[in-house]
Nucleic acid binder design. Structure first.
Length: 596
RNA sequence: GCACCCGUAGCUCAGCUGGAUAGAGCGCUGCCCUCCGAAGGCAGAGGUCAGGGGUUCGAAUCCCUUCGGGUGCGCCA
């Protein structure tokens, strides 16, 4: 049961035309060129390692628009005083028409101020690149597999899965946006005992559908969502399983129920706007020699052996007794103990098919693997990384991101129960309460490894307490102004009109837009999509501040009916803001609002 | 006992992979609409970046250690 989505566009994004220069990258290149020239002129010794040279916005805007640490990182290797290097570099850079001033500061920082014309060039570039602004080729078409959700097919997705789903999906989009060839994948845990439990639970509902009284013992799933599955089973097979033993119905009911549950899960994912490229079945690994093949690979490397594990220190389980098991030597890769791949009764542990699954991913030719797990799988990280390192001979990196718990609240009340699922609040409950857009954005307002409080009251407020609203409101305000401008025949202009952008608040906003491409790259590099959400909030904040200044100073309003040229320039600027918000929300899978 | 994650303003959290005087929101105090939507904005007070060592031009960030919180540790997945 492996299916590929045939509709996906898998072409690589390596067209160099896609790699537009951006302001920070541009200035960075300029700095490197100046350093190379200084080497050629023997101001600096030749052959310096310039990889640590950075061009960044200074933390304090009073220091300038950009700062470079070049002098300080090169000083030691060059055997020179950093301030001397900075001074010489400043002379070179000051010749660049985009650089208004270059000042040495502190221990050897070089602070750069750009000309207003350079900032205006950013606006022109954004309007030109539109949806492509911020898109990067840094991934060079590398094939990345992002595995996420991977919930057991035993019931609907709950809030915890929702966070993993949103995080994984946004990360995948971010990697796609930065030039990676991404596959979104779901691992179906349909090979273990939990699907037998599912089958037995559905069987009870099936008997119920035939009018019998049933009791749900411990270790069965009592959730309401199985009622219709029991009914559907009755519709399909009639009464042929009613008076038969488990050996006659277990396999068929299990397959039937698993299919139904995956249908449910796919629908849940669709409600959230998540679309997987591939669903990979654990069961397909059994009885096909694939687990054996993966373990044979490890055995050939001397990493599989028969042994007896020490009992865990501290609190030994009461029924603990030494048993010989088949073990994987994960300690060779930094794990604390070696891990069993086979239970003492000869059955595979969960780890064994997972090894085979990752072996399969490696053999499909991925250059990089990413797994998104819940925080309760933290103990699993080292052994999985060990297995991938061993299977790929250290060729394929595996990054495992853990998503922390979500505490769902309504004001001070904590929401825990869902009648439908019998246990947790479901993904569907959350999406029904606040909508997919809000759910997605809020799930990304924390780092993945930080716990998240999700207040379903607060996120429906239309105020700045609600970050989703705040960002969408900025976009809607811009669209409103653009519509209003169009009504009176004023539309965003081109590069010739951008002289209207002069006020410090306007230049601050434009500078923020210039940061977008490097923000995207650093977020992708770190596998941290939440940075996009925080950036969008800051951008919205800068925009709202400028908007408000228009209340006090009419010259800062975007529509100047008596001055079409200025209006065209200002409209171009705010359209650029809207483009960046739209691109950012697009990565997060949130739709930008046209009106509110 | 061991491993992993975390500890930043009264509260909830960012901090761009080592940069300059540590930021935002909430809360608190005081302001701003004859308004391109105030569904917003401005200003102020508030910090021993848990404590202690180390690495270097430079540490909230990297290393060691102590304390405190969370998660996990064969025969569940």
């Amino acid at each position: 049961m492996i299916d590929l989505c045939p509709c996906r566009d898998t072409r690589l994004r390596t067209d160099p035309e896609d790699t537009k220069m951006t302001l920070f990258a541009d200035i960075h290149a300029t700095v490197l060129a100046a350093l190379a020239a200084m080497e050629a002129e023997a101001v600096l010794p030749a052959g310096l390692d310039t990889r640590a040279v950075a061009v960044e916005p200074p933390r304090d805007a009073a220091h300038g628009d950009m700062a470079t640490n070049a002098a300080m990182v090169l000083a030691k290797a060059a055997g020179m005083n950093p301030r001397d290097i900075a001074t010489a570099l400043a002379v070179k850079l000051a010749q660049d028409p985009r650089i208004a001033s270059a000042d040495v500061a502190g221990p050897g920082f070089l602070n750069l101020r750009l000309t207003p014309a350079a900032w205006r060039g950013v606006v022109a570039a954004i309007l030109d690149q539109a949806g492509g602004y911020g898109r990067s080729a840094m991934g060079q078409g590398r094939r990345v597999n992002v595995e996420y959700v991977s919930a057991n097919p035993t019931g609907p997705l709950h809030v915890g899965h929702t966070r993993g789903a949103v995080f994984g999906d946004a990360l995948a989009s971010l990697l796609d946006f930065t030039g990676h060839d991404v596959t979104r994948e779901y691992y179906i845990n349909d090979g273990g005992a939990q699907v037998d439990v599912l089958a037995r639970s559905v069987y009870l509902r099936y008997l119920e559908a035939h009018g019998q009284e049933v009791a749900f013992a411990d270790g069965t799933y009592p959730g309401d969502y199985l009622i219709e599955v029991g009914q559907a089973l009755k519709d399909k097979v009639g009464d042929k399983f009613v008076d038969t033993g488990e050996q006659f119905w277990l396999a068929e009911v299990r397959d039937f129920a698993t299919d139904k549950m995956m249908g449910l899960i796919r629908a849940d994912l669709a409600a959230l706007g998540v679309k997987m490229d591939m669903f990979y079945s654990e069961k397909s690994l059994y009885g096909t020699g694939r687990i054996e093949a993966a373990l044979a690979d490890l055995r050939g490397k001397g990493l599989i052996y028969e042994g007896v594990l020490e009992p865990p220190k501290g609190k030994t389980p009461e029924d603990w007794e030494p048993r010989s098991q088949t073990l994987f030597r994960s300690t060779a890769f930094g794990d604390d103990v070696d891990r069993p791949v086979m239970k003492s009764d000869g059955a595979w542990t969960y780890f064994a098919p997972d090894i085979a699954y990752h072996y399969d991913k490696i053999s499909r030719g991925f250059d990089e693997l990413i797994d998104i797990f819940g925080a309760d799988h933290g103990g699993y990280v080292k052994r999985m990384k060990a297995a991938v390192a061993a299977l790929s001979d250290n060729r394929v990196p595996l990054d495992i991101k853990l998503t922390q718990l979500v505490k769902l609240k309504r004001g001070d009340e904590e929401l825990k129960m869902s009648k439908r699922a019998g246990t947790f609040v479901t993904l569907r409950d959350v999406v029904d309460m606040v909508g997919a857009d809000v759910t997605r954005f809020v799930m990304l307002t924390r780092k993945n490894d930080a716990p998240l409080d999700f207040d379903v009251e607060k996120v429906r407020e239309q105020s700045k307490d609600n970050p989703v609203f705040y960002v969408q409101y900025a976009h809607a305000r811009i669209q409103s102004v653009l519509r209003k401008g169009a009504e009176i025949g004023l539309v965003p202009g081109g590069v010739d009109d951008l002289g209207a952008i002069q006020d410090p608040a306007e230049l601050t906003l434009v500078a923020k837009l210039a940061h977008w491409p490097r923000l995207v790259e650093s977020a992708a590099e770190a596998h941290e999509p939440h940075r996009i959400a925080f950036y969008l909030y800051e951008l919205a904040s800068d925009f709202h501040a400028l908007w408000n200044k228009g209340n006090a100073d009419a010259a800062l309003r975007f529509l100047q009916e008596d001055d079409p040229a200025v209006t065209r320039g200002k409209l171009a600027m705010i359209r650029a803001v809207a483009i960046v918000i739209s691109n950012g929300l697009g990565i997060l899978g949130v739709s930008p609002a046209e009106k509110m």
